[in-house]
Protein backbone atom coordinates (compact mmCIF):
# COMPACT_ATOMS: atom_id res chain seq x y z
CA UNK A 1 0.00 0.00 0.00
CA UNK A 2 1.45 3.32 -1.05
CA UNK A 3 1.61 5.76 1.83
CA UNK A 4 3.19 8.49 -0.31
CA UNK A 5 2.20 9.08 -3.92
CA UNK A 6 3.69 11.79 -6.08
CA UNK A 7 2.32 12.31 -9.55
CA UNK A 8 3.82 14.72 -12.11
CA UNK A 9 5.03 17.05 -9.38
CA UNK A 10 6.41 20.36 -10.56
CA UNK A 11 7.63 23.28 -8.51
CA UNK A 12 9.18 26.39 -9.90
CA UNK A 13 10.28 29.57 -8.18
CA UNK A 14 10.09 33.02 -9.59
CA UNK A 15 13.27 34.81 -8.71
CA UNK A 16 12.87 38.58 -8.70
CA UNK A 17 15.57 40.92 -9.73
CA UNK A 18 16.63 42.72 -6.58
CA UNK A 19 16.77 46.46 -6.65
CA UNK A 20 18.71 48.69 -4.37
CA UNK A 21 17.27 51.20 -1.93
CA UNK A 22 13.85 52.22 -0.83
CA UNK A 23 12.60 53.19 -4.29
CA UNK A 24 13.81 49.83 -5.52
CA UNK A 25 11.81 48.09 -2.81
CA UNK A 26 8.67 49.96 -3.85
CA UNK A 27 9.23 49.05 -7.50
CA UNK A 28 9.93 45.45 -6.49
CA UNK A 29 6.37 45.30 -5.24
CA UNK A 30 4.85 45.88 -8.65
CA UNK A 31 7.37 44.90 -11.28
CA UNK A 32 7.92 41.31 -12.34
CA UNK A 33 11.37 41.31 -13.85
CA UNK A 34 13.27 38.16 -13.01
CA UNK A 35 13.43 34.59 -14.09
CA UNK A 36 11.93 31.22 -13.30
CA UNK A 37 13.87 28.44 -11.59
CA UNK A 38 12.40 24.98 -12.05
CA UNK A 39 13.36 23.14 -8.87
CA UNK A 40 11.27 20.00 -9.37
CA UNK A 41 10.34 19.06 -12.89
CA UNK A 42 7.62 16.49 -13.46
CA UNK A 43 8.53 13.89 -10.85
CA UNK A 44 6.40 10.81 -10.06
CA UNK A 45 6.98 8.02 -7.56
CA UNK A 46 5.27 5.99 -4.86
CA UNK A 47 6.52 4.86 -1.50
CA UNK A 48 5.00 1.92 0.34
CA UNK A 49 4.36 1.93 4.08
CA UNK A 50 7.40 0.70 6.00
CA UNK A 51 9.91 1.43 3.23
CA UNK A 52 13.13 3.32 3.77
CA UNK A 53 13.98 5.16 0.58
CA UNK A 54 17.06 7.20 -0.25
CA UNK A 55 16.49 10.39 -2.20
CA UNK A 56 19.72 11.58 -3.67
CA UNK A 57 21.17 14.00 -6.17
CA UNK A 58 23.77 16.73 -6.41
CA UNK A 59 23.40 20.21 -4.89
CA UNK A 60 20.38 22.06 -6.18
CA UNK A 61 18.82 18.91 -7.62
CA UNK A 62 15.46 19.60 -5.97
CA UNK A 63 15.54 17.19 -3.02
CA UNK A 64 14.70 19.66 -0.26
CA UNK A 65 12.04 21.26 -2.42
CA UNK A 66 10.34 17.89 -2.92
CA UNK A 67 10.39 17.21 0.82
CA UNK A 68 8.96 20.63 1.57
CA UNK A 69 6.07 19.89 -0.76
CA UNK A 70 5.51 16.52 0.91
CA UNK A 71 5.29 18.19 4.33
CA UNK A 72 2.90 20.92 3.23
CA UNK A 73 5.44 23.74 3.62
CA UNK A 74 5.38 24.52 -0.09
CA UNK A 75 2.45 24.53 -2.48
CA UNK A 76 3.54 22.91 -5.77
CA UNK A 77 3.18 24.62 -9.14
CA UNK A 78 1.36 21.55 -10.48
CA UNK A 79 0.90 17.84 -9.93
CA UNK A 80 -0.83 15.59 -7.40
CA UNK A 81 0.56 14.45 -4.09
CA UNK A 82 -0.96 12.42 -1.27
CA UNK A 83 0.72 11.56 2.00
CA UNK A 84 -1.13 9.21 4.33
CA UNK A 85 -4.17 9.85 2.16
CA UNK A 86 -3.98 13.64 2.62
CA UNK A 87 -3.05 16.46 0.27
CA UNK A 88 -0.21 18.08 2.21
CA UNK A 89 -0.74 21.77 1.38
CA UNK A 90 -4.51 21.54 1.78
CA UNK A 91 -4.66 19.42 4.92
CA UNK A 92 -1.44 20.60 6.47
CA UNK A 93 -2.58 20.65 10.08
CA UNK A 94 -4.00 17.13 10.03
CA UNK A 95 -0.97 15.81 8.21
CA UNK A 96 1.45 17.47 10.64
CA UNK A 97 0.53 14.94 13.33
CA UNK A 98 1.36 12.06 11.01
CA UNK A 99 4.78 13.17 9.85
CA UNK A 100 8.07 13.92 11.50
CA UNK A 101 10.83 15.88 9.80
CA UNK A 102 14.48 16.50 10.48
CA UNK A 103 16.23 19.18 8.46
CA UNK A 104 19.89 18.68 9.19
CA UNK A 105 20.74 22.24 8.24
CA UNK A 106 18.21 23.84 10.55
CA UNK A 107 16.96 22.85 13.97
CA UNK A 108 13.28 22.51 14.83
CA UNK A 109 14.05 23.09 18.52
CA UNK A 110 13.81 26.29 20.53
CA UNK A 111 17.23 27.83 20.45
CA UNK A 112 17.30 29.28 23.96
CA UNK A 113 15.48 26.53 25.85
CA UNK A 114 17.00 23.40 27.37
CA UNK A 115 16.41 20.36 25.19
CA UNK A 116 14.01 18.77 27.65
CA UNK A 117 11.86 21.90 27.69
CA UNK A 118 11.70 21.96 23.91
CA UNK A 119 10.52 18.38 24.03
CA UNK A 120 7.86 19.14 26.64
CA UNK A 121 6.61 22.05 24.54
CA UNK A 122 6.39 19.72 21.58
CA UNK A 123 4.37 17.32 23.70
CA UNK A 124 1.76 20.08 24.00
CA UNK A 125 2.11 21.08 20.37
CA UNK A 126 1.32 17.57 19.20
CA UNK A 127 -1.02 16.73 22.06
CA UNK A 128 0.90 13.60 23.08
CA UNK A 129 -0.66 11.92 26.15
CA UNK A 130 1.69 11.90 29.14
CA UNK A 131 2.15 8.14 29.30
CA UNK A 132 3.06 7.92 25.61
CA UNK A 133 5.38 10.89 25.98
CA UNK A 134 7.19 9.35 28.91
CA UNK A 135 7.46 5.96 27.27
CA UNK A 136 8.85 7.49 24.07
CA UNK A 137 11.21 9.77 25.91
CA UNK A 138 12.73 6.96 27.90
CA UNK A 139 13.04 4.85 24.75
CA UNK A 140 14.94 7.60 22.93
CA UNK A 141 16.96 8.53 25.98
CA UNK A 142 18.36 5.08 25.83
CA UNK A 143 18.95 4.52 22.14
CA UNK A 144 20.14 8.08 21.47
CA UNK A 145 22.02 8.47 24.76
CA UNK A 146 20.44 11.81 25.56
CA UNK A 147 21.09 11.85 29.29
CA UNK A 148 24.23 13.94 29.23
CA UNK A 149 22.61 16.95 27.60
CA UNK A 150 18.86 16.96 28.23
CA UNK A 151 19.17 20.05 30.43
CA UNK A 152 21.51 21.96 28.13
CA UNK A 153 20.11 24.87 26.11
CA UNK A 154 19.91 23.86 22.47
CA UNK A 155 22.25 26.63 21.35
CA UNK A 156 25.04 25.07 23.44
CA UNK A 157 24.67 21.56 21.99
CA UNK A 158 27.24 20.11 19.63
CA UNK A 159 26.05 19.37 16.12
CA UNK A 160 25.79 15.66 16.82
CA UNK A 161 23.84 16.22 20.02
CA UNK A 162 21.54 18.71 18.35
CA UNK A 163 20.84 16.30 15.54
CA UNK A 164 19.88 13.61 18.03
CA UNK A 165 17.66 16.11 19.79
CA UNK A 166 16.03 16.97 16.49
CA UNK A 167 15.42 13.31 15.75
CA UNK A 168 13.64 12.80 19.08
CA UNK A 169 11.63 15.95 18.48
CA UNK A 170 10.49 14.57 15.14
CA UNK A 171 9.45 11.22 16.58
CA UNK A 172 7.86 11.98 19.96
CA UNK A 173 4.37 12.02 18.51
CA UNK A 174 4.92 8.62 16.88
CA UNK A 175 4.43 9.67 13.27
CA UNK A 176 4.17 6.82 10.76
CA UNK A 177 6.21 8.86 8.25
CA UNK A 178 9.63 10.42 8.75
CA UNK A 179 11.40 12.80 6.38
CA UNK A 180 15.11 13.25 6.87
CA UNK A 181 16.86 15.99 4.90
CA UNK A 182 20.59 15.43 5.37
CA UNK A 183 20.43 14.02 8.89
CA UNK A 184 24.12 13.08 8.89
CA UNK A 185 25.50 16.35 7.57
CA UNK A 186 28.55 17.48 9.50
CA UNK A 187 28.62 14.44 11.79
CA UNK A 188 31.84 12.55 12.45
CA UNK A 189 32.24 8.89 11.57
CA UNK A 190 31.16 7.59 14.97
CA UNK A 191 28.13 9.85 15.26
CA UNK A 192 27.14 9.01 11.72
CA UNK A 193 27.30 5.27 12.36
CA UNK A 194 25.25 5.71 15.53
CA UNK A 195 22.66 7.76 13.67
CA UNK A 196 22.35 5.06 11.03
CA UNK A 197 21.82 2.37 13.63
CA UNK A 198 19.08 4.36 15.26
CA UNK A 199 17.35 5.06 11.97
CA UNK A 200 17.49 1.40 11.10
CA UNK A 201 16.00 0.46 14.43
CA UNK A 202 13.21 3.01 14.13
CA UNK A 203 12.36 1.78 10.67
CA UNK A 204 12.46 -1.89 11.68
CA UNK A 205 10.98 -1.82 15.18
CA UNK A 206 8.43 0.90 14.74
CA UNK A 207 7.62 0.39 11.08
CA UNK A 208 8.19 4.06 10.32
CA UNK A 209 8.30 4.90 6.62
CA UNK A 210 11.46 6.91 5.95
CA UNK A 211 12.40 9.20 3.08
CA UNK A 212 16.01 10.25 3.41
CA UNK A 213 18.22 12.68 1.52
CA UNK A 214 21.96 12.63 1.93
CA UNK A 215 25.20 13.29 0.12
CA UNK A 216 26.79 10.26 1.71
CA UNK A 217 26.61 7.16 -0.44
CA UNK A 218 27.38 5.01 2.62
CA UNK A 219 24.19 6.22 4.32
CA UNK A 220 22.23 4.95 1.37
CA UNK A 221 23.96 1.64 0.93
CA UNK A 222 23.66 0.82 4.60
CA UNK A 223 20.11 2.00 5.15
CA UNK A 224 18.10 1.72 1.98
CA UNK A 225 17.07 -0.98 -0.41
CA UNK A 226 15.64 1.49 -2.83
CA UNK A 227 16.72 4.88 -4.00
CA UNK A 228 15.57 7.72 -6.18
CA UNK A 229 18.17 9.80 -7.97
CA UNK A 230 17.28 13.26 -9.19
CA UNK A 231 19.19 15.97 -10.95
CA UNK A 232 18.05 19.34 -12.20
CA UNK A 233 14.60 18.50 -10.89
CA UNK A 234 14.24 15.39 -13.02
CA UNK A 235 14.05 11.82 -11.78
CA UNK A 236 16.99 9.88 -13.25
CA UNK A 237 16.60 6.60 -11.43
CA UNK A 238 14.07 4.79 -9.28
CA UNK A 239 15.12 1.30 -8.29
CA UNK A 240 17.25 -0.85 -6.07
CA UNK A 241 20.41 0.43 -4.46
CA UNK A 242 21.97 -2.91 -5.29
CA UNK A 243 21.65 -2.37 -9.05
CA UNK A 244 23.37 1.00 -8.85
CA UNK A 245 26.06 -0.41 -6.64
CA UNK A 246 26.69 -3.23 -9.06
CA UNK A 247 26.81 -0.91 -11.97
CA UNK A 248 28.71 2.06 -10.59
CA UNK A 249 29.38 1.45 -6.95
CA UNK A 250 31.84 -1.29 -7.83
CA UNK A 251 34.12 1.24 -9.40
CA UNK A 252 36.67 2.67 -7.03
CA UNK A 253 39.40 5.09 -7.93
CA UNK A 254 42.97 4.96 -6.75
CA UNK A 255 44.58 8.38 -6.95
CA UNK A 256 48.36 8.13 -7.05
CA UNK A 257 51.08 10.76 -7.14
CA UNK A 258 54.08 9.36 -8.97
CA UNK A 259 57.51 10.10 -7.60
CA UNK A 260 59.14 13.12 -9.27
CA UNK A 261 61.89 10.95 -10.74
CA UNK A 262 59.39 9.14 -12.95
CA UNK A 263 58.69 11.05 -16.12
CA UNK A 264 55.72 9.38 -17.77
CA UNK A 265 53.71 10.94 -20.54
CA UNK A 266 50.13 9.81 -21.07
CA UNK A 267 48.10 7.23 -19.19
CA UNK A 268 49.59 4.35 -17.22
CA UNK A 269 49.18 0.85 -18.56
CA UNK A 270 48.13 -1.44 -15.70
CA UNK A 271 46.25 -4.75 -15.67
CA UNK A 272 42.61 -4.46 -14.52
CA UNK A 273 42.82 -0.67 -14.20
CA UNK A 274 41.98 2.28 -16.39
CA UNK A 275 43.85 5.52 -16.06
CA UNK A 276 40.92 7.87 -16.50
CA UNK A 277 42.53 11.21 -15.75
CA UNK A 278 46.00 12.70 -15.44
CA UNK A 279 47.25 15.92 -13.95
CA UNK A 280 51.06 16.21 -13.85
CA UNK A 281 52.36 13.40 -11.64
CA UNK A 282 48.82 12.61 -10.42
CA UNK A 283 46.84 9.76 -12.00
CA UNK A 284 43.28 8.59 -11.38
CA UNK A 285 43.11 4.81 -11.76
CA UNK A 286 39.70 3.20 -11.88
CA UNK A 287 39.25 -0.44 -10.95
CA UNK A 288 36.38 -2.74 -9.96
CA UNK A 289 35.84 -3.82 -6.41
CA UNK A 290 34.78 -7.32 -7.49
CA UNK A 291 37.95 -7.85 -9.52
CA UNK A 292 40.61 -6.54 -7.20
CA UNK A 293 40.88 -5.56 -3.56
CA UNK A 294 42.37 -2.20 -2.70
CA UNK A 295 45.52 -3.97 -1.53
CA UNK A 296 45.88 -5.80 -4.84
CA UNK A 297 45.36 -2.62 -6.78
CA UNK A 298 48.01 -0.81 -4.77
CA UNK A 299 50.44 -3.65 -5.25
CA UNK A 300 49.76 -3.59 -8.97
CA UNK A 301 50.81 0.04 -9.12
CA UNK A 302 53.73 -0.01 -6.70
CA UNK A 303 55.32 -3.03 -8.36
CA UNK A 304 55.67 -1.06 -11.57
CA UNK A 305 56.03 2.54 -10.46
CA UNK A 306 57.54 4.52 -7.61
CA UNK A 307 54.83 6.53 -5.96
CA UNK A 308 54.98 9.29 -3.42
CA UNK A 309 51.38 9.30 -2.18
CA UNK A 310 48.02 7.69 -2.77
CA UNK A 311 44.37 7.93 -1.77
CA UNK A 312 41.41 5.68 -2.43
CA UNK A 313 38.16 7.28 -3.59
CA UNK A 314 34.82 5.53 -3.16
CA UNK A 315 32.12 6.40 -5.67
CA UNK A 316 30.10 9.39 -4.48
CA UNK A 317 26.67 10.53 -5.52
CA UNK A 318 27.97 13.27 -7.78
CA UNK A 319 30.21 10.71 -9.47
CA UNK A 320 27.34 8.30 -9.98
CA UNK A 321 25.10 10.96 -11.43
CA UNK A 322 27.91 12.03 -13.74
CA UNK A 323 28.39 8.44 -14.85
CA UNK A 324 24.70 8.02 -15.53
CA UNK A 325 24.93 10.99 -17.86
CA UNK A 326 28.16 9.81 -19.45
CA UNK A 327 26.66 6.43 -20.18
CA UNK A 328 23.67 8.26 -21.59
CA UNK A 329 21.51 5.66 -19.90
CA UNK A 330 18.25 6.37 -18.19
CA UNK A 331 17.93 3.28 -16.07
Amino acid sequence: MAIITVDSLRKSFWVNQRRAGFAGAVRGLVSRTGHEVVAVDDISFEIAAGEMVGYIGPNGAGKSTTIKVLTGILVPSSGQVTVAGLVPWEQRRTLAGKIGAVFGQRTQLWWDLPLIESLTLLQHVYGVPSDRFNANLSYFREILELDGFLDTPVRQLSLGQRMRGDLVAALLHEPPILYLDEPTIGLDVVARARMREVLQEINRERGVTVLLTTHDMDDISQLCQRMLIIDHGKLLYDGSVEAIRERYGMERTLVVDLDGSEEIEGPLELPGMTDVQQDGPRHWLRFRRDQASAAEAITAVTSRHRIRDLTLEEPDIEGIVRRIYEGGDRL
Binding site: K68, T71, G72, I73, R92, R93, T94, A96, G97, I99, A101, F103, R106, Q108, V125, Y126, G127
Partner: peptide, 13 residues
Protein backbone atom coordinates in the same frame (compact mmCIF):
# COMPACT_ATOMS: atom_id res chain seq x y z
CA UNK B 1 15.83 32.51 8.16
CA UNK B 2 13.12 30.17 6.81
CA UNK B 3 11.85 29.66 10.36
CA UNK B 4 8.38 29.68 8.95
CA UNK B 5 9.17 26.15 7.71
CA UNK B 6 9.08 25.05 11.31
CA UNK B 7 5.76 26.79 11.90
CA UNK B 8 4.19 24.97 8.97
CA UNK B 9 5.46 21.62 10.22
CA UNK B 10 3.32 21.83 13.33
CA UNK B 11 -0.32 20.95 13.66
CA UNK B 12 -1.44 24.40 14.79
CA UNK B 13 -2.64 27.44 12.97
Amino acid sequence: RAEFDRVLLRPQS
